Simulated scan of single mutants.
Amino acid sequence: QIFIRSTDCDRTLMSAEANLAGLYPPEGQQMFNPNISWQPIPVHTVPEFEERLLKFPLTPCPRYEQLQNETRHSAEYINKTKESWHFLQMVANETGIRDVSLESVWSVYDTLFCEQAHKMDLPVWVTPDVMTQLKQLKDFGFEFLFGIHSRVEKARLQGGVLLDHIRKNLTKAANVSAHQNLKLLAYSAHDTTLVALQMALDVYNKIQAPYASCHLFELYQEDDGNFSVEMFFRNESGREPFPLTIPGCQHKCPLQRFLELTDPVVPQDWEQECQVASSIHDTELFVGLAVCGSILLLLIILLLTVLLRIQSQPPGYRHVSNEGEEQA
């Protein structure tokens, strides 16, 4: 009745196992050892190089890279870069990292945050104000990955892939005739996974999800037989999950309406949509030129062969007219 999928990373695999230990403590015959309140539950994964569902950004995708380059030229990105230039230079000087940018500063904040969480002493230059500014820039960097410019198209190339998978499972679960026994489908992944998904749903709060965050989809069958979807976001341990409402619908969103609203961010053919129009045209041009060149080369070789065969033949007999004989 449950299926658990994780990325092939130690921390996400361990998170899945820890959550399952809390959700499903053994009972009765499941207790194989009275001193161990735990039972084995399978966690499924695929090698990292095969991951096309939970690890974002999804690459390679030329069109997505093109959109990112366009985002770097947007007014919002340029202004943020100018505003933060002196601060980023200070961070580069203090850390010794040569290239600290809006896109890479997250790694500095992440390292310092982990050290702080483990009660380690931070460098003297890392004041509370510095940590606050690093966090703000890191949050902007996350937004850059999936938004700021062309959010819908980026979603089709990124978070929409996961959303498509979720939509199909919701639809399958709502199909009574399919006799679906699955009650829980859980993914153990990364903060960027949540950002990509929530950007596709247009419910992202522009703040990096903290550890152990969870985005929930719940499917309900109403009294009239129709199905509805409710979403929640759990990003605090001390309170109930926050309800999320997709734009254009109420919190208890009819399944059909949910599918209609999310359809624009779901790719029809991810590999095709990832291609860049100019590169497709260039490829066709190169193939055409290559074919024409090959044909021309074959014709030249054939012509040279014929000429060589003609020149290599010895001279044969030929009739020489005798004018005198003809007159006689």
Rank of each mutant, 00 (worst) to 15 (best):
R63C: 04
I207G: 02
S237T: 01
S188E: 15
M90N: 00
T59C: 05
F87P: 00
Q313P: 13
S278C: 13
Y220N: 14
F49H: 14
I246S: 11
D129M: 06
Q221K: 09
L184A: 01
V176T: 14
E271D: 12
E83N: 10
Q327V: 13
Y64D: 07
W270F: 02
M231Y: 07
S321E: 15
S150P: 05
A186D: 15
R98M: 04
A173M: 06
Q256H: 12
A117P: 12
M120K: 08
K119W: 02
I97W: 03
E222Y: 04
K252P: 01
M231Q: 15
L216H: 10
M14E: 09
N205Y: 04
D282V: 15
I2C: 09
L53F: 05
S107E: 05
P314H: 14
Q208W: 02
I246H: 12
V291L: 11
W125M: 05
I166N: 15
Y187F: 12
P26S: 08
N19C: 12
H86W: 05
V276I: 15
T111K: 08
F146N: 00
A92V: 05
E65M: 03
P60K: 05
P25L: 08
V100P: 02
K183I: 09
E218L: 03
S188R: 12
L67I: 10
V100I: 08
T127L: 07
C9A: 07
S237G: 03
L297A: 11
R5I: 10
A75K: 05
D164M: 13
V203D: 11
I4R: 03
T193E: 11
G159N: 10
E103D: 04
A117R: 10
D139C: 03
L163V: 08
P247N: 12
T59Q: 07
F87S: 00
V130N: 04
H149P: 03
Y211I: 06
M120W: 03
S104Q: 02
L185M: 00
H165K: 13
L157G: 02
G324L: 14
V161C: 10
F217N: 07
N93L: 01
T132C: 06
I300P: 00
